[in-house]
């Protein structure tokens, strides 16, 4: 499905302490976590983010702690997906496990600036920067990741496998 959203563009090493500081981890409620998302790196984020927007960042997005609160906060803030040059390992697993799409597309990161409007089709992993007109295609997921991604996360997959879906 073709959608449109604004890009929130950040640099490298956007760690999980920046995405959601530990001082807010005394809750597991997604909406509450979302209300503090990116606070220490971009005060505007929470004020302006809309459903369908996209986070774009350079290398090593999500490094540091294993806190799943980070992708949970991003997803609950309305962000549709994250594009980065590459992701830290635990963040990558966590995002896929909770059904937050993430894509490694270095060329797109180089092209996109903060505030650019992107057109995209998540299911196809296709993006277009309306400012530059350039289009980007993400590589296909590995079969193991795709299996989780297609059913919307690890828990739905396990339920399906156990016949409890």
């Amino acid at each position: 499905m073709l959608e449109k959203g604004k890009s929130y563009r950040y640099g490298r090493d956007v760690n999980t302490d920046l995405i959601i500081p530990a001082r807010y981890m005394s809750t597991t409620d997604p909406d509450e976590l979302a209300s503090f998302c990116m606070e220490d790196i971009d005060k505007n984020f929470v004020k302006t983010v809309r459903k369908g927007d996209i986070i774009v960042a350079e290398e090593n997005f999500g490094n540091g702690s294993s806190r799943e609160h980070a992708p949970i906060a991003i997803k609950a803030s309305g962000v549709q997906c994250v594009i980065a040059k590459f992701f830290a390992r635990i963040f990558y697993r966590n995002a896929i496990n909770i059904g937050l799409p993430i894509f490694e597309i270095p060329e797109a990161v180089d092209d996109i600036q903060y505030g650019d409007i992107l057109e995209y089709d998540i299911d196809k992993g296709w993006f277009k920067n309306t400012r530059t007109g350039r289009e980007f295609q993400a590589k296909a997921f590995t079969p193991e990741v795709k299996e989780i991604f297609d059913v919307g996360g690890l828990i739905p997959l396990i339920k399906k496998q156990l016949g409890k879906a």
């Binding site: 294993s66 806190r67 799943e68 635990i90 697993r93 966590n94 496990n97 690890l154 828990i155 396990i158």
Partner: peptide
């Protein structure tokens, strides 16, 4: 790992 992985 993360919390969902732990649950799984």
């Amino acid at each position: 790992i993360g919390s969902t992985d732990l649950a799984g």
